[in-house]
Design a protein around this nucleic acid. Structure first.
Length: 489
RNA sequence: CGGGGCGUAGCGUAGCCCGGUAUCGCGCCUGCUUUGGGAGCAGGAGGUCGUCAGUUCGAAUCUGGCCGCCCCGACCA
């Protein structure tokens, strides 16, 4: 139920947690660190999948599926990759249980695997081991494959959607004949993520390059889109990696070029996760509950009849039927809630809390006047409208809401992005949250020092920003451009 | 892995210090009245008090062990 949501200003973390639970997006499972994604939350993921999948297809990718289990030895083949993931891998050691008089069932010690299997934390190794058999000639390239899957990373501390032991994602893995082509692919998919974040999630993001210490284990370059949450903390919303020839070399993936010479292929990988649901919540929602951009709302319009008796309800059904039909003919998703075990007031509160972008209430007065009451979730404004052309009006309204959410989030980010020029100023400003633009000398040592002293990290080296020479705020050494610092999720 | 908290009906809780078989709210069921911002009244159902052992005539309550989860920090999308 949706009463007494913690206020954001009182305790942002608690607000987030309460909201996820009370808006019925997810709940904690009995398994530590794992969540159950409930229908309302999963429906949002399905909308994300559908939009992204279309964008992947439009850029020439196809879907496939690779095993959840990865032989342990595969991991050893790419040194930095192992190092990056070794600490958080779940390992399967046996393949059978047997009944036991005391404990019910026990692991059968006779059924030990010769080689342990790793539950995938990411699939580069098994995919590259497979690609080796698929790629022989330049004619086999580029290979552009995506997979929708679950992965497991044994995290020390978890948070619903933001960090769970098991999560859902998509991972694209591509192979190319040239370095240049692979870099273009990396950038192309980063741009797909930017468009998706801004046009669908209504979350403004900054495209950038990760520093060495934040780079994906096994990548040459990691690109990212970074978003700023309402509490002033940064959240990485997607990544795209240029893997160079690291995995091709580790797994011997060679192709014969037009000159009949053997060369290692060039690779990329890129992914977004169910974490985006967390980003969506922390970008748009308020003290009244969830706020969803219309393009990702499982249902865009809730229609609520207000009637005193059964006859009136029948009359209302007849009154709204053409309206609902015309809404649906425009591709708008509608829920007509004529459940008479719940009162209208209860439904208002419920749909508001769950983030339905638009609510239409209709009662006896509306039938007399030829009107409906339209309420928008983003501003909580209510307006009585003539029912004539209501589908067009609602269609426009949904567009406005989508746009308004983006503009509000953008304004929030801009108001919380500022340049700082000294480390003293930085230390003071970082306490207020937000993105800080500062000069950095490019060394991991400086970055580490800042992290230890302020808990802030370099979120990214922004792409496409005008070069600006300066001096590192910490070391005083020369710097070619400002980078973005923030405290992050 | 450290620190803190919690475990009592579907959910949220009181009771525990000071032992006597469990409180209240929400939800659920029945009936009537209601319905434009979480309805009212009346009646009703629902609990191995996380688990195991100990103390005791008697344990939700005292003692010890175990299990589970959550929150805060260090690592990570």
């Amino acid at each position: 139920m949706a009463e007494q949501l913690t206020k954001r200003a009182d305790d942002y973390a608690k607000w987030y947690n309460d909201l996820v639970l009370k808006a019925d997006l997810a709940e904690h499972s009995e398994v530590r660190g794992c969540m159950v994604i409930k229908p309302h939350g999963y429906a949002i993921w399905e909308k994300m999948q559908s939009a992204l999948d279309g964008m992947f297809k439009a850029t020439g990718h196809v879907n496939a599926y690779f095993p959840i289990f990865i032989p342990k030895s595969y991991f050893a083949k790419e040194a930095s990759h192992v190092e990056g993931f070794a600490k958080e891998c779940a390992v399967v050691t046996h393949y059978r249980l047997k009944s036991d008089p005391v404990h019910g069932v026990v692991v059968d010690p006779e059924a030990k695997l010769e080689e342990e299997l790793i539950v995938r934390p990411t699939s580069e190794t098994i995919i590259w081991n497979t690609y080796k058999g698929w790629i022989k000639s330049y004619r086999d390239l580029p290979l552009l494959i995506n997979q929708w899957a679950n992965v497991v990373r044994w995290e020390m501390r978890t948070r619903l959607f933001l960090r769970t032991t098991e999560f859902l994602w998509q991972e694209g893995h591509t192979a190319h004949a040239t370095r240049q082509e692979a870099i273009e692919e990396t950038e192309r998919m980063l741009e797909v993520y930017r468009v998706f974040a801004e046009e669908w999630l209504a979350i403004p993001v900054i495209k950038g390059l990760k520093t060495e210490s934040e780079r994906f284990a096994g990548a040459v370059d990691t690109y990212c889109i970074e978003a700023l949450m309402q509490d002033g903390k940064a959240l990485q919303a997607g990544t795209s990696h240029f893997l160079g020839q690291n995995f091709a070399k580790a797994f011997d993936v060679l192709y014969t070029n037009k000159e009949n010479k053997q060369e290692h292929v060039w690779a990329t990988s890129w992914g977004v996760t169910t974490r985006l649901i967390g980003a969506l919540i922390m970008t748009h929602s308020d003290d009244h509950g969830l706020v969803l951009p219309p393009k990702l709302a499982p249902v865009q319009v809730a229609v609520i009849p207000i009637s005193k008796n059964a006859e009136q309800l029948e009359a209302l059904r007849a009154y709204v039927a053409p309206m609902i039909a015309s809404l649906m003919s425009k591709g708008i998703t509608v829920k007509f809630d004529d459940d008479d075990s719940k009162k209208p007031g209860w439904k208002f509160a419920e749909y508001e809390f769950k983030g339905y972008p638009v609510r239409i209430a209709i009662g006896p007065r509306d039938m007399e006047n030829g009107t409906v009451e339209v309420a928008r979730r983003d501003t909580l404004e209510k307006q009585v409208m003539q029912v004539t052309d209501i589908a067009e009006k609602v269609e426009h309204l949904l567009g406005h809401i989508q746009d308004n959410l983006y503009q509000k989030a953008l304004a929030m980010r801009e108001n919380n992005t500022r340049a700082v020029n000294s480390y003293a100023e930085f230390k003071e400003e970082i306490e207020k949250g937000g993105f800080l633009l500062a000069h950095w000398d490019g060394t991991p040592e400086t970055e580490a020092k800042v992290k230890v002293e302020t808990k802030a990290t370099i979120r990214c080296i922004p792409l496409g920003s005008a070069p600006e020479t300066g001096t590192c705020m910490v070391s005083g050494n020369p710097s070619k451009q400002r980078v973005i610092f923030a405290r992050a999720y």
